[in-house]
């Protein structure tokens, strides 16, 4: 299937000489939720801004739905909805007025039924006649989403969508994003909340210092890079790991009271757990409890960014 967004050799160097994007190549598939992760200043917002037409690219090419963002900007931009990171809204316009304005700006005929649907979906219908200045921060965030959805985009960019919103609203937004995906909208989100990417994304891209470090299916990424650990709480602390257990790469923790075994499902290490337990019994090492843990996406992200430095 042809990607909905195709980015090739995209670079951006600002007037001061700072190179924010360094030859980005990236394809976004139609209908997926793509999470773009990266530390502050990695180039996430510049990348989104360039695709949406806010930032001028220095080199490279971007196509949205097969349309070049420069030579066919009307067709490309008509397909995109953008929710910016900052809560940038007019203060004195009404909720209904500003959402209707956005629809018109994107070249769509007035459609009160659609605006009503969007406002109801985002729990803003009761506030439709309120001035924006009277809305809470969470409501303003939802309003920005409503504006972005007003012209029925096929691609939605969410730049840090849940920054500064409470847990309940965050979960509401996640549910909304899933509903949008079900309706065929491609969602690209940037986030600092790894939990958010882990919860929602189909694929994950990591950007650092203007370069895409990795693009991978979330499940595959977790499988490939996600380490698992088995921790055994010993009956009696050990001073050192017995030589016959050296091949397992065990580590002592908790003052010698815990034995930590790191393994990888992908390598079939799980089968060796049984062997380890047998060897422990043979060495006379008893344990009173055990637990397993898996590295989170956050651990993976930190590791990737660290490696790319």
């Amino acid at each position: 299937m042809q990607p909905i967004i195709s980015i090739s050799a995209l670079s951006k160097t600002y007037a001061g000489g700072f190179q924010a994007l360094k030859g980005i190549d990236l394809d976004i598939r139609q209908g997926e939720i793509f999470a773009l992760l990266g530390p502050n200043g990695a180039g996430k917002t510049t990348l989104i801004g360039t695709i949406c037409g806010i930032v001028r690219p220095s080199a490279g090419r971007v196509r949205v739905g097969g349309h070049d963002i420069i030579s066919e900007y009307r067709a490309a931009r008509s397909m995109i909805g953008l929710v910016p990171q900052e809560l940038t809204t007019d203060a004195f316009e009404s909720v209904w007025g500003t959402v209707s304005f956005s629809r018109g700006l994107f070249g769509k005929a007035p459609n009160p039924a659609h605006i009503e649907k969007v406002l109801r979906e985002l729990s803003l219908w009761d506030k439709r006649n309120n001035k924006i200045i009277t809305l809470s921060g969470g409501m303003k965030r939802r309003l920005l989403i409503a504006k972005a959805l007003s012209h029925e985009p096929q691609v939605l960019f969410l730049d840090e969508p849940t920054a500064g919103v409470d847990v309940e609203l965050r979960r509401d937004m996640w549910a909304l994003v899933r509903r949008l995906r079900e309706s065929g909208v491609t969602v690209i989100l940037t986030t600092h909340y790894i939990e958010e990417a882990e919860e929602m994304a189909d694929r994950i891209g990591v950007i650092n210092k203007g370069e895409i470090v990795l693009v991978e299916e979330k499940a595959e990424l977790m499988r490939k890079l996600g380490k698992k650990q088995l921790t055994l709480h010993l009956d009696a602390p050990l001073a050192e790991i017995p030589g016959r257990l050296a091949d397992y790469g065990l580590e002592l923790a908790g003052g010698g009271g815990q034995l930590v075994y790191t393994y990888d499902d992908a390598r079939g290490d799980r089968a060796s757990i049984l062997k380890l337990l047998e060897d422990l019994a043979a060495a006379g090492i008893a344990f009173k409890d055990l637990q397993t843990s898996q590295s989170s996406l956050e651990d993976i992200f930190v590791s990737l960014v660290k490696d790319s430095r």
Binding site: G53, I54, A76, R77, P84, T88, S102
Partner: peptide, 11 residues
Amino acid sequence: SGTIYELLSAP
């Protein structure tokens, strides 16, 4: 106010 983003990203 920053709302210029909408005009710049519109067709």
